[in-house]
Write a protein that binds this DNA or RNA. Structure first.
Lengths: 172, 172
DNA sequence: AAATCTGCTTGCATGCAACAACTAAAGTGT
DNA sequence: ACACTTTAGTTGTTGCATGCAAGCAGATTT
């Protein structure tokens, strides 16, 4: 079953939207599958999802749970759970927030950095494989457009928040 | 918390891979969130995930469960369940496969088409909003590169299958 | 110091996908 | 033609990730 009809090239905007939507869900499916295959947890028992936290902490510095949630578009509770796991495994440590005793700043530990670096390498090896035949230019273009897409999606969230797409009509 | 260090522009391939990885997970998070916000199920009680099946059937014609599973990178059982739901709600119908009595060809019903169309419109409205400020050229480029990315990821799956990224070292 | 607010954690429910056990229909060999 | 194996799909169970809501402890206000 090779993509035939709509999967060749866009004729007009609507077709393009269709196609892009398709690529979007295709991508999500692929990643979902990849996630299950790469094993749910690293040998350190860290949730896959928790690496995003590590990434954020490393790139942005120690953060509060709430900030992380905001940044990662997750529930605070989710971050809380994942952070706990990271702390338990010694990849992240809690520091008392000098400005607020209730809050705890999460910061990567040396071990956390090391583990993250290794993961980063793994991921990059994989990505390099995937993009092996790409020209440098295309890679950069993809990167840039992808980033823009994400940003634009982020900016379009508020609308979805209350517009909450009603979807179709029929009642059964 | 604005992206600072590595989130500006790629210096070399490794940095680019880093950045792209980041965009990838960012995207997944965004979509994940979007999915939950758009409501778990359509008013017809159909799982969100099932729409991919509808899409596939409409674009590729009646298919067997197994083909769908292959195409959508899902387990047959998953497809089976979702298909059942679609059948129950009259969006898809089972046709006996003339070539094999065990198999059933799944085909969209008129109602299925209608419902899908409505969903498509919704999605396109949203996408149009997201890509509102893009030039047509950029949109097409994104679409093309995204498609290529997906294809290349698909092709790199076999490796992941058994290489199953060992990840890091320390045992704690 | 009592009332309130806020940041985080925990319990419960949901959605989704995988694995396994099972049914039924084809093929195969004698 | 009849048992035996293989193949297609369905259903039950399990497990994971997430969101919501309730609870808890530290901070703030009056």
């Amino acid at each position: 079953m090779a993509p035939n009809s709509s999967a060749i090239r866009p004729k007009d905007e609507l077709d393009l939207a269709d196609q892009l939507s398709h690529e979007l869900v295709r991508f999500v499916r692929l990643i979902t599958k990849a996630k299950t295959q790469v094993a749910a947890q690293g040998p350190d028992g860290i949730e896959r999802a928790a690496y995003a936290i590590l990434f954020c902490l490393i790139h942005e510095g120690p953060q509060r749970t709430s900030k992380l949630a905001e940044y990662l578009h997750s529930e605070i509770s989710t971050i809380s759970r994942q952070s706990s796991a990271l702390v338990q495994h010694g990849l992240v440590e809690r520091q008392a927030d000098p400005e607020d005793g209730r809050a705890c700043l999460l910061a990567p530990t040396g071990e956390g950095l090391r583990v993250f670096e290794e993961n980063r390498k793994q991921r990059n090896v994989w990505l390099a494989g995937v993009l092996g035949n790409w020209t440098q230019e295309d890679r950069e273009t993809l990167n840039e457009l992808f980033g823009r897409l994400n940003t634009d999606i982020e900016n379009n969230f508020p609308d979805m928040g209350d517009t909450t797409v009603p979807q179709q009509s029929k009642g059964a």
